[in-house]
Design a binder for these strands. Structure first.
Lengths: 355, 355
DNA sequence: TTGTACGCGTTATCAA
DNA sequence: TTGATAACGCGTACAA
């Protein structure tokens, strides 16, 4: 057998430019030949079809197992028109929030026999084009997008694809049907209420880049809490960063001019920069100044002082998104908007207002 | 045309259980029909082959473009026997080191027309099996493994695959040929020398799980520095964690019993836990105690105090690994061991010994 | 310069 | 219960 196979492979025209793999993997026909059955029978046996004789099936499976045969998902995908792959787009994996979501997605996908194509867009329109194009060519069965900072042209491209799409933390409400998101409004309102309860009256908000949905919702939650307390959110107490520590430092510097006693940061990465700027000004946290985050990233509890924040079940959100996508890919219905609760986690970065 | 196609698709037997995609994507034959040429001509035109009439090629490309045609990478992979995909295994993406490497790999892969299958192993033997199996079935052209905490059975499985493999931070020296790694020894030695230069004499080492290569190398660097200074590394000054902050807290507690004045942590995640434990004991950093990390993760400079550490060019390492894999997949040679330099970054978590 | 014919490794359909 | 045979969508000899 082996010789026959090798001979056949050697008979193929030699590689001219691109190096052709010399030793091609075993095919279903190889197994069929060894088992002295037809290749459809092998196919059936390996799929545990009841239409094949039990003993024959057993023999076939034994041969397949011992020879290390692996059915080609490529060929299967061609005929079944389902690749059992999904495309997962992130702005960048090198972001703790995204990587937690990716982790949840990947686990769930694998548990259901799906493989995940990962693609970083880096919010670069050129890359976005390539990503969507690649997913289309790969014939992915579905697409998952997380925390997209997507360009305008990206949306129509995605929608052109005839596969289900689920978003995590949709920043473009209305553009897509299915999404998983956290209770941004309630989460940030709880944070602001916590600070108000500690006696703070001049509370700043350090947001994400302007125009994104989750920032808008968190800002609204902040506003609602202040207004419920009879305060109004002064414009000079509101600034925007871009979810990165360095931009947060700059924004925090401007905010400090307005003399707040506390700041609600859009997320933990932002809090990282805010904290640094606050200390650079000689203020102690929480004695002189209170700081809060959002996400509860792994480092939040290890900061000095440990960061008061809102826990976002990132991995779980990835899992929920993937489960939703699985349903859609099976042609079933799925809840359009899945919403997870936000949990305030009080640590030591917030304290009673100084006076 | 469209009607003909729709009619054809509709003629397919209706879905019985699994929902069949109703509207199948345009195929090369569809384009050929519209352009009134044969499908090989379309294939040639789209590959910018010189063997096709310039005007015909132009027309074909225009039609393909306007119709949103995307050649199936699945079908192409079947015939060319190259999928232009790679498999990327990480212990977990939800780790800042891994996600930076992933980022570098993904970028480089995409720039070269490769798509990346991401798989988390979670150091779980069962998952490892499934990952390798999936990669084999997907017919990936190559495999990249980063910071593997791999089980024993995993190795032979990987090696069975007839595709090139490159490791980032190989923890199993000798098992694989190609890898990218950092100068662990020199990096940690520089750290220890830095502490010695600050007058420290009782310097502890808080390592990774015992038995891994990078931990062994870093420990050796630490030892070398001490011995060069006429000191010997006392056993009670050496402890092991598992690269996670909580294990580091526990290990640090034990180390403190030996009364060190400084600790060299295996990496930044470990330092996170060490710092917390040190403070819990009422020690100030760096006044009473010095702490160092390794990796220079994004949060290192934002800690209070900013962490002295060793910069590891993680993204670049991912890029180098991918470039090496690209060469191997092209059948070329590649440097077996790629080694990147380690750079000591002195910040404020280290200071002169107290006395 | 183009078209015909074939094969890639599967699954699906039919007949036996 | 099994085996021919035909797709799936592409690339590529070879012929025209």
């Amino acid at each position: 057998m082996a010789e026959e196979k090798a001979g056949k492979a050697a008979g193929i025209a030699p590689a001219q430019g691109a190096p052709r793999r010399n030793q091609r993997p075993l095919s279903i026909k190889d197994i069929a030949r060894i088992a002295r059955v037809s290749h459809p029978t092998v196919s059936r046996a390996l799929q545990n079809s009841p239409l094949v004789n039990a003993k024959t099936a057993e023999k076939i499976r034994k041969i397949a197992d011992e020879s290390g045969y692996r059915a080609s998902a490529v060929a299967r995908g061609l005929v079944t028109r389902r690749t059992r792959t999904i495309g997962l787009v992130v702005t960048t994996v090198a972001d703790p929030f995204a990587s937690e979501v990716v982790c949840g997605v990947e686990q769930t996908a694998n548990d259901h026999g799906y493989s995940v194509f990962l693609a970083d867009s880096h919010a670069d329109p050129e890359r976005e084009r390539k990503v969507v194009r690649a997913f289309a060519e790969r014939r992915v069965d579905g697409i998952l997008v997380t925390s997209s900072r997507v360009g305008a042209l990206y949306l129509p491209m995605l929608k052109e694809m005839e596969v289900p799409i689920v978003l995590v933390n949709d920043q473009h409400p209305g553009a897509f049907v299915h999404s998983v998101m956290i209770a941004n409004f309630e989460g940030m309102r709880a944070v602001a209420e916590h600070l108000l309860g500690l006696g703070h009256r001049r509370i700043a908000y350090l947001g994400d880049q302007f125009g994104y949905q989750s920032d808008a919702e968190r800002l609204a939650g902040y506003r609602a809490a202040l207004e419920a307390a009879g305060l109004s959110a002064a414009p000079e107490l509101i600034a925007h960063g871009n979810s990165k520590p360095d931009a947060a430092m700059a924004a925090m510097e401007r905010l400090l001019a307005a003399r707040p006693t506390a700041v609600c940061c859009y997320n933990d990465m932002t809090a990282l920069g805010a904290l640094r700027q606050i200390r650079a000004r000689g203020l102690r946290v929480p004695e002189d100044f209170s700081v809060t985050g959002f996400d509860d990233l792994f480092f939040a509890e290890y900061l000095q002082p440990p960061l008061t924040t809102v826990r976002q079940p990132m991995r779980r959100m990835g899992q929920l998104a993937m489960e939703s996508l699985l349903r859609l890919m099976e042609g079933e219905e799925s809840v359009p908007q899945i919403r997870v609760e936000a949990e305030l986690v009080v640590r030591a970065s917030t304290g009673r207002v100084k006076e």
